[in-house]
C-alpha cells in the first residue's frame, strides 16, 4: 500500500487486496497518515483486485475518519468486480465513487 498527500488530500493506492487479513493494518496506517491539516481521503482502487466484507468494513471506517473532519472520502476507479460487491451490499449509495 502507498500513501501520498497533496492539496490536503491523503491518497491511498497500490493495494491489491482489502480483506479480513489486511483490513486492520490498512485502517491503522490510514489513521496514522491522516494528519491534522488533511481534510479528504481518496482511495485509489485501480490496483484493488479483491474485496471481502471485512474490507468493506475497513472502507466504512476510513470514510468515518474523513467525515469526522468534515472531509470527503472517495473511491477512485474501482474495477467491475469491486463494483459488484459494493452494489450487492448497496454501499455504492453511501460512497462517492469516481470511475
Amino acid at each position: 500500500m502507498k500513501t501520498s498527500t497533496a492539496n490536503s488530500i491523503l491518497t491511498i493506492s497500490s493495494l491489491r487486496e482489502l480483506t479480513a487479513g489486511t483490513a486492520a493494518e490498512v485502517k491503522n496506517q490510514v489513521r496514522l497518515r491522516f494528519t491534522p491539516g488533511l481534510t479528504a481521503i481518496d482511495f485509489d482502487c485501480t490496483d484493488l483486485e479483491f474485496l471481502d466484507s471485512s474490507g468493506l468494513g475497513a472502507l466504512i471506517s476510513i470514510q468515518k475518519l474523513a467525515h469526522e473532519r468534515q472531509g470527503l472520502f472517495r473511491l477512485l476507479s474501482p474495477r467491475p468486480g469491486i463494483m459488484q460487491v459494493l452494489e450487492l451490499t448497496r454501499l455504492h449509495r453511501i460512497f462517492e465513487i469516481v470511475a
Binding site: 471481502d52 466484507s53 468494513g57 471506517s61 450487492l88 451490499t89 449509495r93
Partner: peptide
C-alpha cells in the same frame, strides 16, 4: 439482512446468501 449502512461488519452472511 444487511446491517446499517455505516456498520463496519455483518455483511458476510448476506453476501454468502446472496451469491
Amino acid at each position: 439482512q444487511l446491517p446499517d449502512d455505516y456498520a463496519e461488519s455483518g455483511r458476510g452472511l448476506f453476501l454468502i446468501h446472496s451469491l
